[in-house]
Design a protein around this nucleic acid. Structure first.
Lengths: 197, 197, 197, 197
DNA sequence: CATGAATGAGTGTTCATTCAT
DNA sequence: AATGAATGAACACTCATTCAT
């Protein structure tokens, strides 16, 4: 009855789980969480509806798992930034933020859509809230280290800009000069200023 | 022939319509469009479900009416800004944007939630797209007039900041120093620069 | 308070009532009774929804009134047929039946649609039943008088044919040779037979 | 991979589908299509409302499926008639038509009810139209072969009679002498005439 | 007599979830 | 582990009918 090894089973599990998560992300990130049906996810993942409930307790649990995975991925990226030279680190963070936007369009769309609903997806709201504050603190600290004037205010500006870029990029798409804005921010915050000395 | 006067009917209609629109805005702007049911709207507006369909063809038509009203309101505000002195005008626009954020939280939430869904609420997406570009052009032109260096790039920054502030304010609420950021932007863009002369 | 004479009021009543009945017939007879809404009737009659309920207790009462009017009209037509010469009378009846089909398409459609529903429009069913039997008796008697062989069976055939023609005309419309069939029936039943003597 | 065998699923599907179709026919054919609710069908089929939508896209699709099945059944019956001897064939067709009336009361009622509504169930109208013309052609040809005088006109009479019998039987039920009329038609059209030789 | 805004029970339909296999 | 048939609560929407004026 059990000719498959444990490893095979686990591989199966992993494969199905990730197929489901990928399909869900694809749909949540385009048509939205509420407008996506379990049937659509099952079809896109080429899996039966029932199987989804073997791995996830509910549609919301599936969402939660996705958000958590996303949160972990975000942390992982943060840990790869160089921690010695504050200027290099800031540049690394800025470039990382822009790359995130480029590579996680669906995720951004999803989160943006969820974060607007009050009292319903508190775990998303909380995560967004926490991340925003973490970013703020980190960047503020870096700007202080590189002796950028008004470092707190500038950190506010910079983090706010990140979110603004996210929204504008999401709406304007190719019309938004992502590369240009990236270089401009690098220049403003990571290069030695001439006239500000 | 007519037992209630035309005026009476008109008043009745206006009252119901606005009650419905208000209730819908309240709900769409908090729990979201899709998560809001017609029954909830009817209850909040203290009106029967059926009556809503006397005034709006469908749930989506109700949304459309709301968005259009919003769009008009936006235009009206834009027309009130002083058009003589570019510096004054820019300040007026910036202050207007912040006041909009303060007074239209529900609307912002709603639009932000809708704009993320692709191929579903194109009229919202289109409006957002158009407004963003209009703002960009207007501000760019003003910065050029007041001889702000790199006026196009700075206009990009400023409009992007508006959206970013919207997102952060929406998530962080009281934790976001709205007033402080407002003053800072006024100072940066509307006051004579010392070192830049 | 009552500056209008009784006659004026009655004229008003008659006008509205008949406008409503006409509109209802138009709609019942094309889209069907159930598919027709009171709102559609009101609109077509250029009358308010409420007024319809001044004259008719309910949608079904409106239908009943229509059917009754129709029934009376049918009787009136029957009374106009010449009662002296049985052959002439038969011809008159046959021609009358064909003219009825030509002039009462909507009514036929309506009745045909209603008569199929069991336990719902018994008054229609009953009327149809009664009319069919009356016709059968009358024609049978006439055929007997003109010494048509197998007069009962032939009466059955003839009345059945009337209904069949109704159905086929209703479905095939211009493709059905109504005039041709009319002449054929007249020839068969109302002219002296050559070979059958 | 699959817990229930393909066959098991197939059997389940077939069972549910036919239960639903039977229940729908029962109701459509008595109270009528529009007056029948999905809830009633579900209850009579001892099935949940939702399941109906697993098999049929909509109430109208359910009707369409029923009509199509009916159309196929009609063709099947037509193919069983003896094709060698035209007289035998004609008798077979006449007897077939009467048996159809006896065994398909609900279907006839349903179709008769639908065919009266214009611009709404065109597929029913079209089918009725087509069948009528097919029958007309076939019978006309047979009468020609057996050298019946005025074969076209007589074919018209005969097919019209079929429909008329349908209507009268539907209204008069047991009061209509179906058997008697059947024998009479057989005698008139399928037996060698005395005086016509 | 006449209006049309207002109601609410009822309709077709959807969809997350369960369960026998 | 996997299937998909089955459920039923919930939804958007309709419409005959009422009623204040």
């Amino acid at each position: 009855m059990s000719p498959r090894s444990k490893k095979q089973f686990e591989a199966l599990r992993a494969s199905s789980t990730s197929r489901i998560l990928n399909a869900a992300l694809e749909l949540f990130g385009t048509v939205g969480y509420q407008a996506t049906t379990i049937a659509q996810i099952a079809e896109k993942a080429r899996v039966s509806k029932g199987l989804i409930y073997n791995y996830f307790d509910s549609k919301e649990a599936l969402l939660k798992a996705m958000i958590e995975e996303l949160s972990k991925e975000g942390e992982k990226i943060m840990q790869t930034v160089d921690t010695d030279d504050p200027t290099k680190m800031l540049e690394s963070i800025i470039r990382g933020a822009f790359n995130w936007l480029r590579n996680h369009e669906k995720q951004n769309r999803l989160i943006m859509g969820l974060v607007t609903q009050v009292d319903q997806f508190d775990f998303v709201h909380d995560m967004a809230n926490r991340k925003m504050k973490e970013y703020m603190e980190l960047i503020s600290e870096l700007l202080r280290k590189i002796k950028f004037p008004n470092h707190r205010t500038e950190a506010r500006i910079l983090t706010t800009l990140f979110d603004g870029i996210g929204v504008q990029y999401l709406v304007l798409k190719q019309d938004y000069p992502l590369d240009e804005v990236e270089e401009m921010l690098i220049k403003r915050y990571c290069l030695p200023k001439k006239g500000n000395s």
